[in-house]
């Protein structure tokens, strides 16, 4: 028996299917699981996992156009709705044509659900993704309630419609990889800075490194010094005692650099607001390129945020 027989034209029975062992060939996926003593747990694409989010997941507060609230501002009850929110995320305003505009600032919302408890016909907690944005204004949802034509209320749901649009997450994940490759060679180095968070966001950021989300396969990795970093991932409302340290970290990071604010606190101060001890958001200290809302944002939302950041630099 010569080498030719083993590797070349040997009988099909004896040939080892290297493809099945080494590569994630979807056709042979079942075979793989038989060979491995621990089956693979890494999800095909972290963004795809969003579809399996549990039904009661507190993902985002959505405003539902409801005619019951059309004349709230006119009758002076708008304040009542606004005051239910601890971080002042809700605004009720009268605009032209006698209609009432209800806005919700996702940068401030920390998903406590108090508005849903009090006004369940206007606000609803849903499991959808709280989309990150480059600009704070894009985080504001607004709905106009028209008293004359209550049935056409849904017409004004322009922003919400965009949010609920089903995205092809697989495609987005590949795009992320391509963009990172084109910009920073093959990798994106992230330095995480805690600006006085409650540790909730850190837990979700740490989860990116676990075998289930495994962000390193996209070329994203966490580095131990700002001098090695392309991205500063900042959490927390930036406590007064951290201001100097955060500025120093920013200065130590080489250009080009990106700052991402993670969580409601980093986006706007969140529940901690703007006090003697906090600054009320990362953008009061540093220029911020991307806001990832949520309290805390789930790992999928963090990856989504990284993609959107790359987008900004690309254009």
């Amino acid at each position: 028996m010569n080498e030719k027989n083993v590797f070349g034209k040997g009988s099909k029975k004896n040939r080892i299917d290297y493809k099945g062992i080494l590569g994630p060939n979807p056709k042979n996926r079942n075979k793989n699981e038989e060979i491995l003593s621990h089956k693979r747990v890494t999800i095909p694409n972290p963004l795809k996992e969003l579809h399996t989010t549990s039904e009661n997941y507190k993902g985002k507060i959505n405003i539902i156009p409801s005619k019951d609230f059309c004349d709230y501002e006119a009758s002076g009850k708008g304040n009542e709705i606004e005051n239910i929110c601890l971080s002042n995320a809700i605004r009720v305003r009268n605009i032209e044509n006698n209609s009432t505009q209800v806005t919700l600032d996702n940068a401030k919302c920390f998903l406590c659900g108090r508005c849903e408890e009090a006004y369940s016909s206007l606000f609803r907690m849903e499991k959808n993704l709280n989309p990150p944005a480059k600009n704070k204004k894009q985080l504001i949802d607004s709905v106009e309630l028209e008293p004359q034509h209550p049935n056409t209320g849904s017409k004004n749901l322009s922003l919400n419609e965009k949010n609920s649009k089903v995205l092809d997450y697989e495609q987005i994940g590949n795009e992320l990889k391509e963009r990172i490759n084109s910009l920073f060679g093959r990798s994106l180095a992230i330095r995480q800075v805690d600006g006085g968070s409650c540790n909730g966001c850190e837990i979700e950021i740490t989860a990116l490194n676990n075998p289930i989300y495994d962000i390193e396969r996209f070329g994203v990795h966490f580095v131990s010094s700002p001098r090695h970093a392309d991205v500063l991932l900042v959490t927390g409302p930036v406590s007064r005692n951290m201001v100097v340290a955060l500025k120093k970290t920013y200065q130590a990071t080489p250009n080009p650099k990106i700052v991402i604010a993670v969580g409601a606190c980093a986006c706007s101060g969140g529940i901690f607001g703007d006090t003697y001890a906090t600054s009320g958001g990362v953008d009061t200290i540093l220029p911020v390129d991307m806001y990832i809302p949520g309290c805390p944002p789930r790992p999928e939302a963090l990856i989504y945020g990284l993609l959107s950041t790359m987008n900004k630099i690309h254009h």
Binding site: G200, S239, R240, M242, F272, G273, Y276
Partner: peptide
């Protein structure tokens, strides 16, 4: 370094609001 003035902040809050603070 992460002092956020939680105890002072609670003094401006109602009982239900401070519950949300206590979770964080």
């Amino acid at each position: 370094y992460t002092h956020k003035g939680i105890e002072k902040l609670a003094e401006t809050m109602t009982l239900d609001e401070a519950l949300l603070l206590s979770e964080r």
